[in-house]
Amino acid sequence: MMIKGLYEAHLPVSDLKTSIAFYEKLGLTLAHENERVAFLWIEKGKSWLGIWKADMSTIPYHVATRHVAFQIKTSSIEQIKAWLIEKGISIHPMFGFSEEKQPLVLDNPPQFHAAIYFLDPDENLLECMAPLELDTEENYDIMAYKDWDRKKNPFID
């Protein structure tokens, strides 16, 4: 296949310096900056995020225009909430799931992913996401990850 992955995604922001500091707190590395745009490496040479100083940062949120999901290792899903909170980043309620109920498992059969949601300084919706089961025959409803884990590992408490 010619396409190997997603190289870049873009978000509107109101203040480049504030947003650069936020994304650096997440571990992204500044690659380029001028007065209207900054690019931060997610994984150097493989993917980066462009943040643009733009009035679009004030339009109401919609997933099609102001959302980015970062891939994390499945083994990290248990630690992601504590990692974000340690960095002063609040978990954003999503799909009726409060901070306490996240991470959650998204129901997009036959694909199931664990996810946790948070906002950047301009309220762009960010997500950390990890694959759990792909192309499965089973069907599940959206649920808290801890319920998924209990379902998959009933003898572990």
Rank of each mutant, 00 (worst) to 15 (best):
S19D: 10
S19Y: 02
S19V: 06
I20V: 15
F22I: 07
F22T: 00
Y23K: 01
Y23L: 02
Y23V: 03
E24H: 01
E24T: 02
E24N: 01
E24Q: 15
E24G: 01
K25C: 11
K25E: 12
L26C: 04
L26H: 03
L26I: 04
G27W: 00
G27C: 03
G27R: 02
L28P: 06
L28D: 06
L28Q: 08
T29E: 11
T29S: 11
T29D: 11
L30P: 04
A31G: 02
H32M: 15
H32A: 13
E33G: 02
E33S: 10
E33D: 07
N34G: 07
E35S: 11
E35A: 11
R36K: 11
R36I: 12
V37D: 04
A38T: 01
A38V: 00
A38S: 07
F39R: 08
F39P: 05
L40F: 07
L40E: 05
L40G: 02
W41P: 04
W41D: 13
W41L: 02
W41G: 03
I42V: 15
I42H: 03
I42C: 10
I42S: 08
I42N: 07
E43I: 12
E43F: 09
K44S: 10
K44M: 08
G45S: 05
G45E: 04
K46E: 14
S47M: 06
S47F: 03
S47K: 04
W48Q: 13
W48R: 13
L49N: 04
L49E: 03
G50F: 02
G50A: 13
G50K: 05
I51S: 00
I51E: 02
I51D: 01
W52F: 12
W52K: 08
K53F: 00
K53E: 11
A54W: 10
D55G: 15
M56D: 13
M56Q: 14
S57T: 05
S57Q: 05
S57W: 05
S57C: 15
S57M: 00
S57N: 07
T58D: 12
T58H: 14
T58Q: 15
T58E: 14
I59N: 10
I59W: 09
I59T: 13
I59Q: 11
I59P: 01
P60T: 11
Y61C: 06
Y61T: 09
H62S: 14
H62F: 09
V63R: 14
V63I: 12
A64N: 14
A64M: 15
A64R: 12
A64T: 15
T65C: 07
T65W: 09
R66M: 04
R66P: 02
R66H: 12
